[in-house]
């Protein structure tokens, strides 16, 4: 198989890995604050985070493209002051993917935290532990299935994304050409055999990941109390 094929596969997994790691870092605090929040602004933030679930990806891609463009204030500031270019670059793809997959990380973790009995955190506070230690040692270890679900969904969702990537990344080999774009591109050029290789790889990968997550969750559920 050509080096272009492997380059595309590598880029696809690199994008998904970088995005998922950053999502864990941003998603856990966001989910924690939403699960604790009693603010009347909470529904506003929840709706904003969940928008990528209901919007066509092209809408998000379109606005990100406008935002990243050197013709906007943000785009020109990024380019001139920080020398960061986001449209049609890998960094831009990572930012787009984070926004696009954010609800898939935040929602399962938030609902996991909300379903824990409130007195677990309270017991920890009465034992002299602060919020961070309580989150890290008591709450998160007890919602492992939710974290795993968020992790896998975000990873798989990033691998499978198409519209956002196409709008803000285009199809630059080695920089922004990921597998889902490559499939479309190969089919357009009537190169069905290569399109099939990409598709089969994505299919098998996704299947193995899902089998893993379901069996792991089953094991967790068997051994942990209900």
């Amino acid at each position: 198989m050509s080096s272009l094929f492997w380059e595309t596969v590598y880029l696809t997994f690199k994008l998904a890995t970088v995005t998922t790691v950053l999502l864990i870092i941003f998603g856990i605090p966001t989910a924690y604050f939403l699960s604790k929040s009693q603010s009347r602004w909470k529904p506003f933030f929840e709706a904003l985070i969940s928008m990528p679930i209901v919007l066509p990806p092209t809408v998000i891609g379109f606005y990100l493209l406008l935002l990243f463009s050197p013709e906007t204030i943000l785009g020109s500031w990024l380019q001139e002051s920080l020398n960061i270019e986001l449209a049609f670059t890998f960094t831009g793809l990572v930012i787009g993917s984070i926004i696009y997959s954010f609800p898939f990380m935040v929602n399962p973790i938030q609902s996991g935290l909300q379903n824990l009995p409130p007195n677990l955190a309270e017991a920890s506070y009465t034992l002299g532990k602060g919020r961070f230690e309580t989150l890290w040692k008591v709450l998160l270890p007890n919602i492992k299935p939710s974290i795993l679900t968020g992790f896998i969904l975000s990873f798989a969702h990033t691998i499978g994304e198409f519209g956002v990537v196409l709008m803000i990344g285009g199809n630059i080999p080695g920089q922004t050409r990921v597998a889902s774009i490559a499939i479309y591109d190969e089919v357009e050029s009537l190169n069905y055999s290569l399109a099939n290789k990409y598709s089969l790889l994505l299919f098998l990968f996704s299947f193995v990941v899902l089998v893993f997550i379901y069996s792991y969750n089953r094991r967790l559920n068997t051994f942990s109390p209900k």
Binding site: P117, N119, L120, E122, A123, S124, Y125, T126, G128, K129, G130, V138, P141, N142, S224, P225
Partner: peptide, 20 residues
């Protein structure tokens, strides 16, 4: 004064042991 700073021991009705 937050609960962390009060010298208390609290036993909950449903125990609230950490399952992990």
């Amino acid at each position: 004064l937050p609960p962390q700073k009060r010298s208390i021991g609290f036993v909950f009705q449903d125990y609230a042991l950490f399952p992990n």
